[in-house]
Amino acid sequence: MNSDDTAQSTRRLRLAAAPGGLCVVQDLLNSASMPAASIPDLLADETSAQAWLDSALRTWQEQTGRTAPRITIGVDDAAALRDLRSHVRGWITGDADDGTPHPLEADITFHDGRLTYAPRHDGAVAVASLIHLETLLASHTGTLRRLKTCKNPACGGAFYDRSRNGTRVWHDMKTCGNALNLRASRARRRHSPLPGEAAEATP
């Protein structure tokens, strides 16, 4: 597996991995580009997508304690993975609620008192099955609601909200929260009339 840090989509944003298998969903979202920070799209082509996937599966293995499946990305898979990323982002942000079914291709086995699963086939189909399974499991355990995307339009980084009340909206308060709060404050000051102007406008 590729150990190049540039392939580690969540780590390049200096974010902690989401718990368990949800980390691979987070890694998919964080593979997107961020032009404002000169961060490239890790699913731009077959080579970069394979590097991203190898890194994401390594994190998944560390987080779940299971052996990661070996999935090979083909020539046409990068575009399919970008589409997958878009619809998963829609689930997380609440912008996709069209009831569209997404097929799963996976094997479920029972061993040592545990049910385990592994995606079938290869390429984007296998990745989609893994992503859909982990998203489904997280939705039932309640952890999915804590996977969020930063409200800064120039960022959109996916982070796991570990705050007690689960109300974080920025991936990082210093880099995104403070910047947007300052921008909003300046905008309010620009549009607020001075005390003298307000008095003159009052009949």
Rank of each mutant, 00 (worst) to 15 (best):
D5R: 13
D5P: 15
Q8E: 04
S9I: 05
R14C: 14
A16D: 09
A16C: 06
A16K: 01
G20M: 02
G21A: 06
N30D: 10
S31C: 06
S31D: 07
M34S: 08
P35R: 12
A36M: 04
A36N: 07
I39D: 02
P40C: 14
L42G: 10
A51M: 11
D54Y: 00
S55P: 00
L57A: 14
R58M: 09
Q61A: 15
Q63R: 13
G65N: 07
G74M: 02
V75Y: 05
D77L: 02
A78M: 05
A79W: 01
D83G: 08
D83H: 09
L84R: 13
V88G: 06
I92E: 05
G94N: 07
D97V: 12
P101Y: 03
H102K: 01
H102Q: 04
E105V: 12
A106V: 13
T109G: 06
T109W: 05
F110G: 02
R114V: 11
L115G: 02
P119S: 11
G123C: 09
A128H: 07
S129V: 03
I131E: 08
H132V: 10
E134S: 09
E134K: 04
T135K: 01
A138M: 08
H140G: 04
T141V: 09
G142Q: 10
T143Q: 09
T143P: 02
K148P: 00
T149K: 01
P153S: 13
G156I: 10
G157T: 12
A158S: 11
Y160I: 10
D161H: 05
R162P: 01
R164C: 07
N165Q: 10
G166E: 15
R168I: 00
R168A: 13
D172Q: 07
D172A: 15
K174M: 02
C176R: 05
N181H: 11
R183Y: 05
R183F: 04
R186L: 03
R189Y: 11
P195H: 06
A198W: 12
